[in-house]
Nucleic acid binder design. Structure first.
Lengths: 342, 342
DNA sequence: TTGAAAGCGCTAACAG
DNA sequence: CTGTTAGCGCTTTCAA
């Protein structure tokens, strides 16, 4: 077993082998203008014969690295995985490679990861549900093409892709109201920061819930338990709601995990779903679809969001001064077995 | 809003600001030998004042990129996420940044991703459950420090971290046998390739099952349904087993998803678990732990595996010609509510 | 211990 | 259309 890895083939080797200049090889690599078909063919042949692969590090020093960085708060969230699928699908066939950083929950970790990606000369960034301050996002986006996914509020420095959370919440409220429910409660993720209150999906869902309730003439029935978007948050939220003088007949949880926790609390209380009480979630994760759970939930089509994000990013890399665009997709409701007529 | 991103601070700026040579700055950056404490302090101050960040691309051209690439077949697999947690936890506090590539299932995608990582001058690679040919892995490992996780079979070019799948299978068989079961069937992932038959965890589990059955004097009861490690595979496998002249009293599924599919098939057949039949899985994923499912399963401690992998990799980066080491961890059985005495 | 200078592999600007 | 040349920002000899 020979230890010495043979010296890596470089652009110079290819140029020599093909009897052309390195410039020409470079042009072929980048599909750039200014090389005759004959030259191209010759260079391509040499590349294949020598098994040449351009060094991204070296390219990055002058031009692009053909690398796109994706930051997402939590790998275990299946919705984020869908977004990622959309991104990679959209980028398949291009020269771009997607790389992602694991576990970036919290403003600090987020900052570190974004720095790391900039240090590595990534051509563009997709930030999924970032929690950083807006000014920080703007600074980042001014330095490198950036698309923000899942955070509302337009920007003039980065493109955004969001799902209409207000509409999503309305879907749930309307569905439950159509089933005859009036006392429809909501479990939200507690938020105080004014910017986030405007931009984060959880806040939008809570707003959407309130709006929709009023629109249905149920303004007096508005009842919100403010916890967190975790299973435990759902459990505690449901407990709190069950302790009300008049118990709600339906719970709209702001996320599927929250609904899961709520289901647990209801089971503990000896209540049947949807017999005694209806429950709906948000995200239509695999958990919601899973047979024994079968949770009514709002579907966001993460793949579509990811594909849009990738498209916007590639466009912006090509034309950095382009005006920003903001894509807002419309969610749908997937009715399953946790909601029923009162 | 000013458009022009200010020119990035370089090592030259720092050198000028600190009134030293770029060489000295470089030494400080790398904690390399040959700079006095006074110099170090001065340089560090300038770095902070200027907000300097070294460019990984430029560093990579001569030295390291301080980037470690992780390849894993499937982001949605929670066990892999645990491994990742272990890797990042172990690497926290070092200068290394972990980056991973999404969706590398299949030999072709795997090859593409590995190439991409090599192109980007990653300092080291962690390959989780790779399916590539062994010769390919050796070639890769000869070029860049590599640790292979979750694939048996020692190598002289790369380190490995595995869990003892044979022992894990035995845990399940012994548990079920202790409960009085004799007709214990197994659903395996079909495998024909001789190398994989020796190296892949699924094959090891099937072997472990057979061995343990014989060790308990149940050699005649060995019954294997050969499908795939998917939910559907579990469904079909269980269907097949239920069609036997004498139905098994317990099913050992090679993975939790498989067990899930099996549970579905049993429900379809009107059988109760564990009343009519016991079911055990493998991986102890979040799904297994989830209350309503509560699946008895083998736990592999992915975090520990990841931490080991990271440690080995960092060691090998520091000393490339070190002899390879092979870490084999021992699984444990988590008994839940899908297994009971016959 | 410190620094000057020569690349690493590639792309961009410019000449021919 | 093709080639020459000068860097990109860093690390690494090698002298001082």
């Amino acid at each position: 077993m020979d230890k010495s890895a043979p010296r890596r083939i470089t652009i110079v080797d290819v140029a020599r082998h093909a009897q052309v200049s390195t410039t020409t090889v470079s042009k072929v690599l980048r599909n750039a203008y200014g090389a005759s078909p004959a030259m191209r063919a010759k260079v391509r042949r040499s590349i294949d014969e020598l098994g040449y692969r351009p060094s991204a590090a070296a390219r990055g020093l002058r031009g692009q690295t053909y690398t796109i960085g994706v930051m997402l708060p939590e790998l275990r969230n299946l919705f984020f995985a869908d977004i990622l699928d959309g991104i990679t699908a959209q980028l398949a066939g291009t020269d771009y490679q997607v790389l992602l950083a694991p576990g970036c929950n919290g403003e600090k970790a987020e900052a570190r990861v974004i720095e790391a990606m900039i240090d590595r000369s990534m051509d563009g960034l997709v930030l999924i549900a970032p929690v950083s301050a807006k000014s920080r996002l703007n600074t980042v986006a001014r330095g490198v093409p950036t698309v923000v996914v899942g955070r509302h509020g337009p920007s003039t420095t980065y493109d955004t892709v969001t799902d209409d959370d207000v509409a999503g919440a309305a879907l749930v409220v309307d569905h439950l109201a159509d089933l005859g429910h009036r006392r429809i409660a909501h479990i939200e993720h507690h938020e105080t920061d004014p910017v986030r209150l405007r931009e984060m999906p959880n806040a939008q869902r809570a707003n959407g819930y309130r709006e929709a309730m009023r629109a249905r003439g149920l303004g007096d029935e508005i009842d919100v338990a403010s916890t967190t978007y975790t299973q435990q948050g759902g459990y505690l939220g449901a407990k709190a709601l069950l302790a009300r003088p008049v118990r709600p007949t339906a719970i709209f949880a702001g996320a599927d995990v929250v609904a899961l926790g709520a289901l647990e609390a209801l089971a503990d209380a000896g209540l049947s779903v949807p017999g005694d009480i209806s429950v709906a979630g948000y995200d239509n994760s695999a958990l919601a679809a899973f047979g024994p759970i079968s949770l009514t939930s709002v579907d966001q089509d993460g793949r579509e969001m990811g594909a849009n994000a990738a498209r916007l990013l590639v466009d912006r890399i090509a034309e950095r001064d382009r005006r920003t665009t903001h894509v807002k997709l419309t969610p749908t409701l997937v009715v399953r077995r946790t909601t029923a007529a009162i």
